[in-house]
Design a binder for these strands. Structure first.
Lengths: 256, 256
DNA sequence: CAGTGGTCTAGACCACTCA
DNA sequence: GAGTGGTCTAGACCACTGT
């Protein structure tokens, strides 16, 4: 429990490594409080700045969370949500379940959805590309944040061409049984195919705040394009998902 | 170009925001050199420590890379590689192409593969689970690093039960035309189904080094399970991929 | 050899939490 | 009110780069 000047690692690294070991072995279990900056500085004979750099390293790795005024604590792992390609099954819609609802209930997870915005907005370049309209064309957006086990997990925006959703429950807070996809089918758009794209990146400060992300937690940006039987794009879905809470799973046959 | 004490943002934030704007507008184009720590500290009237914290923020966002002794530079964006679910098509194998090779050549990207290890190793828990053996059982591993456009993009490990690959070219450096999957089919395992799982996380220090990742770049961990016609798992593939270089794409029909 | 990034010292002040 | 995290000052030394 001290700094070895002969060690090629820097003092901050040595302190971080020792604390990481203690977390790994369970000597510091999830939820446990770490020594304060001042305590660490004194114990290891370094300046507070160096002690802080050591803990910041662990925070960036997602092992430690800070609560200003209270202390630093070993992170309690957040539950993982599996996201599978069978979540769009028609039998689920027929059973009155929206895709997100089905995922959560399958996993036995308490969940809710919070509507952030229902509005007509101009299409940005990506939205315009997929909905096959000119950039700037007014489109309908449904912006929401989903929660699982009392923690936010996803910022999800669905975009539609106006003529597709005008007068439907997709423009209401509650889209009704089966969710938005069920309403689209009622409008005559039989849903036949999906394309999903996943990108990996760091969150913006805003996203980090909205998703309660610990420092150093990446996000996945999921794009989903929903095609009707005629090959038309009927929905463009863009979601930012907490990287520490999701596993994405896909099954497919070996194509011929 | 100065600090406003009335601004609720901290000095380091203000400096970071101004530099980020200059990068965003192109005033500091990719490859441009940023002012040095000392120059920034003097210009803004802050300590060098504060100037460094400002630049570190940009580095963590992946906007800036450091070259010790030389300076800090606006990052030159790395090219994205699309990874699609049709890359396992049988017609590609018949054309003598391995999946990775097909992806790269479709995108017109110069690529190569570097073999890191070909060996018999004990199965860890995850490998054992998917290959349906006891943890610790010896399995065959093929560890490699793939490069695109002169930059590493992927650390890829393929695991096989010993009886599946013994005596085949999968144990050699060069697996031959069509890659490992073609050799498995020759052994009588007709490949019929895949499952892929994607996790998002920060890299370890080792991975960060091996993939030449800039600070603050997350990775995707891809697991692929390959099933034969009889439902048996014939390969478990685990890969760590640079988050800033890949887009994962999947297409699927609306399940019934 | 001048300049650079990386890391460090030994403090300081502020806003906040918790008892 | 004592303790905490967050941020800051005004320097310092080292290993390295590029000329």
């Amino acid at each position: 429990m001290s700094i070895n000047p002969a060690d090629p690692r820097t003092p901050a690294e040595q302190i971080a490594d020792q604390l990481r070991d203690q977390i790994g072995t369970g000597a510091l279990p999830p939820g446990a409080r770490l020594p304060s900056e001042r305590q660490l500085a004194e114990r290891y004979g370094v300046s507070t700045t160096t002690a802080v750099r050591a803990i910041e390293r662990l925070r960036d790795e997602g092992l430690v969370v800070s609560r200003p005024g209270a202390g630093r604590f070993v992170r309690v792992p957040r539950q993982l949500v599996r996201v599978g390609s069978d979540r769009y099954a028609r039998w689920r819609r027929d059973a009155g379940k929206a895709p997100f609802q089905a995922e959560m209930e399958d996993a036995g997870i308490e969940w809710r959805q919070e509507i952030l915005e229902l509005a007509e907005v101009p299409a940005d370049d990506v939205v315009a590309h997929w909905l096959n309209v000119e950039p700037g064309t007014p489109v309908w957006v449904r912006r929401r944040r989903t929660w699982a086990e009392g923690e936010p997990t996803q910022l999800a925006d669905s975009f539609y061409r106006l003529e597709v959703v005008s007068g439907t429950a997709i423009q209401q807070e509650n889209t009704g049984p089966g969710g938005g996809h069920a309403r689209l089918e009622e409008q005559g758009y039989r849903i036949s195919r999906f394309r999903e794209e996943i990108r990996v990146r760091m969150p913006s400060a805003q996203e980090s705040h909205d998703l309660h992300l610990a420092g150093g937690t990446p996000v996945a940006e999921l794009h989903r394009i929903t095609y009707s039987e005629s090959g038309e794009v009927v929905e463009f879905f863009r979601s930012v998902m907490a990287g520490d809470r999701h596993i994405f799973g896909y099954e497919f046959e070996a194509p011929e």
